[in-house]
C-alpha cells in the first residue's frame, strides 16, 4: 500500500476486518518515510504483515526507477527498524518454503529442516524409481523472502492503467491514472497482477480490443488459474470501493476507490497457501 495515502488506505482495507493498531500505524508510517528518505526511493509501499508465533514480521518495499524490476524489500520485527530481505534464487528454498508446515516463529536467524517431496523417475508411464526426499535447511529469513516473493507474484494486484511502461522499458506509476469507472469496476479483466508479466505481450494485448501498449503489458487477474476462483471481488461502501480478496493466499486484500487513483494491496496473514482451494467452491 502506497505510503502517500497510508491511513486512508488502511481505512479502506478495514473491509477485510484487519488493520493496524494506532501505535503500529504511527511507527510504521514514520519509519517508512525515514526509510524512503535514506534510500532515495521514489515510491514506498507497505507490503503487509506475516503473523509469526513470537513476533510478527512487517514487510515493506520501495523502488527508485522501475517499480517492477528494482523493488527492494525490507522486513521489520519491531515496526521501526527495517532490514533488507535477502534475495532468494535457489529453487530448493522456494520449494521448501511452499512445503514448510510449521508457522513462522518470529526469529529471522532460526533454522528449520524441511523435507521436500520425493522425486519420481517415470519411464514409459511407470514409476521406475523414487528418489530419496531431500532435506533442506531453511533459514527463516530466507523463507520469509521466498514467501513474500511468491505471494507478490501470485496475487499482488493493481488496477489497469495504474502503471505505465515507458519507451525505455521502465515501469512507473501512471500520473494520469484517474481510476476505473462505474462500468469497469466490477470486471476482473480491469485488474492486473503487479509483477513482471509472465504471459507474452501479444497474448496480453490480444485480450482486449482497446489495448494500449503502455498499459496492457501486465497480466490480468481473470486469467489466473483456477479461472474465476482465485479472487473474490466485492463492492463496498455504497459500491464506491472495490475490494478484491485472494482466495489462494488468504489475507491478501486489494482495494481501489472508484474514479480515483487510490489503490493498494496489503497482506495480513500467516503466509500459508490455501491448498484446498479447488475443493472449496
Amino acid at each position: 500500500m502506497n505510503l502517500e495515502y497510508f491511513s486512508e488506505g488502511l481505512d479502506y482495507l478495514m473491509y477485510c476486518g484487519m488493520k493496524l493498531s494506532p501505535e503500529q500505524r504511527i511507527l510504521i508510517e514514520n519509519s517508512l518515510i525515514a526509510l524512503q528518505n535514506d534510500n532515495r526511493f521514489s515510491g514506498m509501499y507497505l507490503w503487509g504483515r506475516i503473523t509469526a508465533t513470537k513476533n510478527d514480521y512487517y514487510i515493506a518495499f520501495g523502488f527508485t526507477n522501475d517499480c517492477l524490476k528494482d523493488r527492494k524489500y525490507f522486513y521489520s520485527l519491531d515496526q521501526f527498524q527495517w532490514q533488507l530481505l535477502p534475495f532468494v534464487q535457489s529453487p530448493n528454498i522456494f520449494q521448501a518454503t511452499i512445503l514448510a508446515r510449521e508457522p513462522f516463529i518470529g526469529d529471522p536467524s532460526i533454522q528449520t529442516y524441511v523435507k521436500l517431496d520425493p522425486t519420481f523417475n517415470i519411464v514409459g508411464n511407470q514409476v521406475a524409481g523414487i528418489g530419496c526426499p531431500e532435506v533442506v535447511k531453511l533459514k527463516e529469513e530466507e523463507r520469509l523472502a521466498a514467501i513474500v516473493f511468491i505471494i507478490t507474484e501470485e496475487c499482488a494486484i493493481c488496477p489497469r492503467g495504474a502503471f505505465y511502461k515507458m519507451t525505455d522499458g521502465r515501469v512507473i506509476p501512471n500520473q494520469m491514472f484517474r481510476g476505473l469507472n462505474n462500468l469497469q469496476i466490477d470486471n476482473q479483466s480491469y485488474y492486473q497482477l503487479f509483477r513482471l508479466p509472465r504471459n507474452d505481450l501479444k497474448v496480453n494485448l490480444a485480450k482486449r480490443s482497446d489495448y494500449n501498449y503502455a498499459i496492457d503489458f501486465l497480466d490480468t487477474i481473470d486469467c489466473v488459474i483456477p479461472l474465476g476462483q482465485a479472487f473474490a471481488l466485492n463492492l463496498q461502501k455504497n459500491e464506491r470501493l472495490v475490494v478484491i480478496k485472494s482466495c489462494l493466499w488468504m489475507g491478501m486484500t486489494f482495494f481501489h476507490k472508484i474514479d480515483s487513483h487510490k489503490h493498494g494491496f496489503l497482506y495480513l496473514g500467516d503466509g500459508k497457501k490455501n491448498f484446498d482451494l479447488l475443493f472449496m467452491y
Partner: peptide
C-alpha cells in the same frame, strides 16, 4: 477494536 487493530469499518 480500533485500538486492537481489527474492526469493521468506521462507516
Amino acid at each position: 477494536w480500533n485500538q486492537c487493530g481489527f474492526s469493521i469499518c468506521n462507516d
